Amino acid sequence: MKTKIKVLVVDDEPYSREELKHLLSIFDSIHIVGEADSGEDAIIQTIQLQPDIVFLDIEMPKMDGMQTAKSLMEFKNPPKIIFATAYPQFAVEAFRYEAIDYLLKPYDEEQISETVSRIIKYLKPIDLPKQSKLAGKLAIEDNGEIIYIEPKDIIYVYKEDKFSRIITVDNAYETKASLKELENRLSTYSFCRIHKSYFVNLRYINKLSPWFNGAFQLELKGSNEKLSVSRNYVKELRTKLEI
């Protein structure tokens, strides 16, 4: 890999930051572009430095690692996250944010070496950094388990109460991830927002029919439901369908 991987180290404890930076510095493929001592600072530095990877401590005052990760996922081109913590119980929640890895403190050289190898393997097939979110399946937490879904199998996604529901060709899933978060994570695939509470996979659109007040109705392959296309989203949908 010719392009070095840009890394931001985030931890409120100076010693932990220095230790991690030292362990990472021995790898030629890693370029540490900055460090932050809080979630708020991590967001600012991510905007300024555009890292490919953020090593993110979970237990931080005010804005903790999970809150920071959620904010980073709202970015147009979010960095990939590697969580770091002294406690293993956050692992399931961590993978809601498609974390590449989950490091337990105290760090050791073997652990860091395995993580760097995983990063390289993860990013190798793609051109850093612009396309770093094109990899693999959508990982969600469903009933305490991590489920991996092929984006091509998703028909549509919608918000209901406090949950997002993902409808696939052969199943339905419920997750606490927000609709906006899921839309961002699927932004490199053929999805389009049709309503404030819905977005659909363009591959499954079967029929688009005028309805009333400038709105449309959408019929999807593999689904018996007719979805409403809000007039605020009709233009974007027609553009993506090249109508």
Rank of each mutant, 00 (worst) to 15 (best):
Q131M: 12
F199I: 03
I147H: 02
E174P: 02
R165H: 14
I120E: 15
R203F: 13
I149V: 08
D127P: 01
P88H: 00
R96N: 15
A86M: 06
P125K: 02
T168C: 15
P125R: 07
G136Y: 02
I119C: 11
I166W: 07
R185N: 13
I194Q: 04
L123H: 01
L182K: 05
D108N: 14
T115Y: 02
E174V: 14
L134G: 14
R203I: 08
I120N: 13
A91T: 12
G144N: 06
E109I: 03
K152V: 14
P129H: 08
K137Y: 12
I166L: 09
T115V: 07
L202T: 08
Y158L: 02
I112A: 09
I194W: 00
I149L: 09
E93M: 05
Y198G: 04
V92K: 01
L103A: 04
Y97L: 05
D108Y: 01
T188W: 10
I120D: 13
K180S: 13
L134D: 15
Y87P: 00
I100C: 13
N206E: 15
E181A: 09
V200T: 12
L202A: 06
L202F: 05
I146L: 10
K152Q: 14
I205L: 11
S117N: 15
P106I: 04
S178V: 02
L123Y: 03
Y148F: 14
Y198T: 10
K152W: 09
E150Y: 05
K159M: 11
K121I: 04
K130E: 15
S117F: 08
V169R: 08
I155R: 01
K130M: 07
F191I: 00
L202D: 01
I100K: 11
S178A: 07
F163N: 13
G144R: 09
A139P: 03
T168E: 11
